[in-house]
């Protein structure tokens, strides 16, 4: 139960860890758009290079990246497999009614590389940014929305609390499961319906304790006079440093590179 890799933060000392979380989130969004703007193999190669340098710069063990890819690999295989058959043009291989065209092959490669890059680059963000930094940055980025009466601080606070509760609830589930197993609950055998039924003795105490914890937390926050975002100052205020400007510059160069490749070099057959 405890070894669920949930985009966990991996503490290390790398350039990526020290970057401003706001810059990281914005650059991630830019990067995702960029991945979908690749029109030929040259620009795709450029994006792959970008992804790999980010992965290497993060100083996070490659094993963790593999783990996050493992969960998604089935989806990648299925989508690229389906894409193989959806292409128009001259068939390269035809076998009965099944035709594989050059366009299909290209599509399959593009789709799988795009999905894999997305996963890698977003894992890089969650591995190198602590959950509190992440929500903090989101709060700052969403600040303009306060104009529309969006409770930005409250949303960010809810996210922080939700993230904090994930490991707690996992631990709690573990404990309750052990306690019910000690009373002879059988969770490992039986058909699907029996197994779902076997979860009731775990889920009910889990919900009860989640509500209890939520209530206790609310009381504890009120005891410390928490009243939302109004007039709240912060202990750590975020500042952009040279390294942040530099990384923004690198991404801009990457964008220019991708655009130039798309425009100047021949398109892939699509």
């Amino acid at each position: 139960m405890r070894d669920i890799a949930f985009g966990q933060f991996y503490p290390a000392k790398s350039l990526l860890h020290r970057l401003d979380p706001r810059a990281k989130i914005l650059l991630l969004i830019v990067f995702i758009v960029l991945v979908f703007c690749t029109a030929n193999y040259y620009s795709l190669l450029l994006v792959i290079l970008g992804v790999f340098s980010v992965v290497l710069f993060s100083k996070v063990p490659l094993r963790l990246y593999f783990n996050s890819l493992k969960m998604i690999i089935v989806i990648v295989l299925i989508t690229s497999f389906l894409n193989l058959f959806y292409g128009t043009g001259e068939p390269v291989i035809s076998w009965g009614f099944i035709k594989i065209t050059l366009e299909g092959i290209n599509n399959a490669i593009f789709v799988s590389v795009r999905i894999l890059s997305l996963i890698l680059i977003s894992s890089a963000l969650t591995f190198t940014t602590s959950p509190t930094d992440l929500t903090d940055a989101l709060e700052r980025l969403m600040k303009p929305l306060t104009v529309f009466k969006v409770k930005v601080h409250e949303i960010a606070m809810m996210m922080t609390i939700a993230l904090r509760f994930v490991p707690l609830l996992l631990e709690e589930t573990d404990k309750i499961m052990s306690a019910q197993k000690a009373r002879g609950a059988d969770m490992e055998s039986g058909n699907l319906i029996q197994r779902i039924k076997a979860l009731v003795p775990v889920l009910i105490p889990l919900f009860v304790s989640a509500f209890r914890r939520a209530y206790e937390l609310a009381v504890a926050m009120e005891c410390r006079c928490y009243q939302g975002g109004e007039g709240r100052t912060r202990m750590k205020s975020l500042h952009l440093h040279t390294r942040d400007y530099l990384s923004i510059l690198v991404v801009i160069i990457l964008i220019v590179g991708v655009v130039l490749c798309n425009v100047l070099l021949p398109q892939a057959v699509r």
């Binding site: 404990k175 309750i176 306690a179 000690a182 009373r183 009731v200 009910i204 105490p205 009860v208 304790s209």
Partner: peptide
């Protein structure tokens, strides 16, 4: 071997 966990009241359902 019956085992009563710590704070067993949280397992009532």
């Amino acid at each position: 071997v019956g085992l009563v966990f710590q704070y067993p009241e949280y397992q009532l359902f």
